[in-house]
Amino acid sequence: PRDVIKHPLQNSWTLWYFENDRAKNWEDNQVEIYNFDTVEDFWALVNHIKPASEIRVGTDYSLFKKGVRPMWEDPANKNGGRWLVSLEKKQRGPELNNCWLEVMLCLIGEAFDEFSDDVCGAVMNIRPKGDKIGIWTGDGTRTNSIMEIGQRIKSRLNIPAKVLIGYQLHRDLTVKNSSVIKNRHQV
């Protein structure tokens, strides 16, 4: 019967969890939690794990296409960058949970249409100074696609027009002493 068949996603995805255990090296602290490729399995996961606002400060959730590790060193990320959405501390609660869920729905639902192929994944950082959600794309030179993705992120997250979000290249982040990260694009 129709309802037994699960709804397939365009891509397979992996949810990762990062916790900074100083005894281990950074890459080993990224733990694969679960792979899924249907709507039903996505919800089974999300309904099962702690929501974003309840995981410890200093940890991350990341959702990436299967085979892409949630780090700029991965070949799929190396030449790309991220749209960065910064939240205030007081938003760590339902607002953060809704924002992260909406980003995940954009990813698994291919909300960027043909530009979805440029999307690698998204990272959610829980940090003392304020939480951040980054939506990662794989090629920092594809301006048209990057801007389209940025526009849709703003509308899906109901970010007011006057509030700008910036797109940063990963390689700009690796410049050690740079305090101010250059936004290559804004929308």
């Binding site: 709804h7 397939p8 639902g109 291919e110 909300a111 979805s116």
Partner: peptide, 18 residues
């Protein structure tokens, strides 16, 4: 090629279906 797209209302509707 074709792309499997789900809009948010459909996905949210699926959240609690058995």
């Amino acid at each position: 090629g074709t792309r499997i797209v789900y809009d948010r209302s459909f996905l949210l509707q699926m959240r609690n279906s058995p």
